[in-house]
């Protein structure tokens, strides 16, 4: 049974009815770690707010834990945990006071569901008397997660929990989510970081309010339609310029120290031809090999066809 189900959900804003969410449908299974992945302004927050009953949809319908997001909003509010995007807790309350406040708000106590948050809370417990405003970004994130979990929700909505957080804290955060998943909580998480996609069970790629694709990260990568090559030389900026001008180039984008390249005509001699061309242009230290695409490659490819 699907824990979260969306059918043609729509939302527009303002007098001009600028569409933010266009006809979005997908479903999230029980106990799944589901990622909604896309850049800022793609409509991720609007979808989360509709699912947490904070916004009314302008079309379509959706259920969370079997309840309708419009009619049964009270029932949903009792069953979900939510961490909004800009969420920053009460800066002038201490860690413990914040947690206690949210526990009481949800009719529970820290002790009652301590097992659930224990893993995360022990990391911030040494600072429990410190005011939330004085915590580092990663610590704040952990505290916010504790607050969202304290009432043992059936479904957890995390809206961009890792935005603006450094790479190490992000990694730790995802490890916490994995452990929570093992406790049977269905988790929906949104992020603009494509590299986090592979950490989810299934993902939806979203751009301009439209879903590009919904699948497991592995399947999405497998569906990439072209052979993909990583290529580099000693002068990477010139390489990009030359490849963009090359006749057989379908797409070429920088990925770290390599460029990712696809050909219009991916025949056997394509690699040899491009190497010849580049050598002729004066490139040295050329390296070119076929690689497996990343989710980011898929996103770029899907964006262009959309």
């Amino acid at each position: 049974m699907a824990t979260v189900e969306l059918h043609g959900l729509m939302k527009h804003y303002g007098k001009d009815k600028i569409p933010a969410v266009k006809d979005v449908s997908f479903s999230v299974k029980e106990g799944e770690l589901f990622g909604l992945i896309g850049p800022d302004g793609a409509g991720k927050s609007s979808i989360f707010r509709m699912l947490t009953t904070l916004l009314l949809p302008d079309g379509g319908n959706a259920t969370v834990a079997g309840y309708d997001i419009v009619k049964d909003y009270k029932a949903i509010r009792n069953r979900v945990g939510y961490m909004p995007g800009k969420f920053s807790l009460y800066q002038d309350l201490s860690v413990e006071e914040n947690l206690n406040f949210f526990a009481t708000l949800f009719n529970t106590t820290i002790q009652q569901n301590y097992e659930l948050i224990k893993d995360i809370y022990v990391q911030i417990e040494p600072f429990k008397n410190r005011r939330a405003g004085k915590l580092s970004g990663g610590m704040k994130q952990k505290l916010a997660l504790c607050c969202a979990l304290i009432h043992k929700p059936e479904v957890l909505f995390l809206d961009e929990p890792t935005t603006g957080v450094d790479a190490v804290s992000r990694k730790e955060f995802w490890e916490m989510l994995k452990r929570l998943k093992q406790q049977g909580i269905t988790i929906l998480v949104s992020t603009p970081y494509m590299d986090e996609a592979t950490l989810c069970d299934r993902i939806a790629l979203i751009q301009n309010g439209e879903i590009l694709t919904v699948d497991t990260p592995e399947q999405i990568v497998r569906n990439y339609p072209f052979p993909l090559y990583a290529i580099r030389s000693e002068r990477i900026t010139h390489l990009l310029r030359h490849l963009k001008a090359y006749e057989n180039t379908r797409s070429c984008f920088a990925f770290g120290e390599y460029l990712h390249l696809t050909f219009k005509q991916p025949h056997e001699k394509a690699v040899a031809s491009v190497t010849d061309y580049l050598t002729h242009e004066g490139h040295t230290g050329l390296e070119c090999r076929q690689i497996n695409p990343t989710v980011e490659d898929c996103f770029i490819q899907l964006m262009k066809t959309a």
């Binding site: 896309g38 850049p39 800022d40 793609a42 935005t163 603006g164 603009p192 494509m194 751009q207 900026t237 990009l240 984008f253 920088a254 980011e296 996103f299 770029i300 964006m303 262009k304």
Partner: peptide, 24 residues
């Protein structure tokens, strides 16, 4: 200071093209 936070992958690369231009 974190100029590309949250922008889509294509724009992010276009942004770096601008950076390279400026550096040149």
């Amino acid at each position: 200071d974190e100029p590309t936070g949250g922008v889509d992958p294509v724009v992010r690369r276009q942004f770096w093209d601008l950076i390279y231009d400026a550096a040149e």
